[in-house]
Design a protein around this nucleic acid. Structure first.
Lengths: 198, 198
DNA sequence: AGATAATAAAAGAACGTTCGTTTATTTTTG
DNA sequence: CAAAAATAAACGAACGTTCTTTTATTATCT
């Protein structure tokens, strides 16, 4: 028996992620990937069923990592403002410290892959978010809203800021935009103002 | 002299857009596209320099259409709330009436293509938006903010709602979400609350 | 302990297919 | 009939995947 070389699988995963980010899904070919990972094409098929399985598995791994970071230090019993602030910090941290992985996730999210993956993702995360929101509403800390409305106002602005931050050019006619803590807090205050009663 | 058949070019463009939406960028092959459009592969190269040029041109066309719809009935001199409401209606209209085209635009936006296209897009649109925001700030109708912060709060929630609307499954554990006018108005009110002084 | 059988990892070459694109030719029409 | 559109056929290259062989490692047996 010969043991699997974990470094090989890791190299394949990382290079694949990088290739997708830099060249898109067209850019990921098994031959080029094998060469980049220092591996034979056939070796990839020891670790992954096929090209789709490779992409799916990378997504699952990355999704898990993102979820863990997002929920770090968070609890559904938290007060609304505290919980939202922690979530924003966590999500921003993930995005800014892992720009390449973030890019990959976004590319998946807006590709036909995402529909296929929708069902497989864990709902514990969504459940935590939901009970947290419901608690906040019950306490009168949050305006009663459909989940989707609440979510759109609470988090979409943050991800748009991140997208501005990651794009090389800012808005045409602007300087390059950098998402720092003051900017984030300023935006967060607006969102809190929108979602808080009175 | 034989004239070009406009229907041919149109068929190529539409089928290509559809293929990208349904199968991603991998899914767009020139042979399959030719067959789908009822045309010889070589014919495509009469209208488009190469595969990339085809995608770019479709994007440019679609971008122009989207911009026109977005600015329909809008003027930079408008009061903030009126302008924002019109923009929301226009953008929502485009998204909901052209889900396939919207999907295409998003897929481009989150792919490596987008970086290449960034510079080519017209800045008149951005300019109109900017002066409108500056007017509103000068009138005290809008909190003074960096353009990116303002943009993120003003429009990102709408696009997130659209994304919920377009995804087949809602949030796990929810019913399918439908973006109707009451929901849109409710969200818009929150955004206005966030961006309006006091 | 040393030889060897067993087994899975890994590699390289090859599979048939499909890719994007071009060439040579025919068809259409001003 | 000239000229451009349109095509069928073909190009080499690259694709995803598999087949066959080699290599490395563990377990077993003497």
């Amino acid at each position: 028996m010969r043991l699997r070389d974990e470094n090989k699988e890791l190299a394949i995963r990382e290079k694949a992620l990088g290739m997708i980010v830099e060249e898109g899904f067209d850019g990921l070919s098994m031959h080029k990937l094998a060469k980049a990972a220092g591996v034979s094409p056939a070796t990839i098929y020891i670790y992954f069923k096929d090209r789709d399985d490779l992409i799916m598995q990378i997504f699952e791994t990355e999704n898990t990592r993102m979820t863990e970071i997002t929920l770090d230090g968070f609890s559904p019993e938290m007060h609304f403002e505290e919980g939202l602030r922690i979530q924003w910090l966590n999500r921003a941290r993930y995005c800014l410290e892992n720009p390449e992985r973030m890019h990959f996730m976004e590319q998946i999210r807006y590709s036909p892959f995402h529909e296929r993956l929708q069902g497989s993702s864990k709902s514990t995360f969504i459940h935590a978010m939901r009970t947290w929101a419901q608690n906040a509403i019950a306490r009168g800390e949050l305006v009663p809203l459909p989940m989707e409305v609440y979510w759109s106002v609470a988090f979409a602005p943050l991800y748009q800021l991140v997208k501005f931050h990651m794009s090389r050019h800012g808005l045409p006619g602007s300087k390059k935009f950098t998402l720092d803590e003051p900017i984030m807090n300023q935006t967060l205050e607006l969102v809190i103002k929108a979602l808080t009663p009175q």
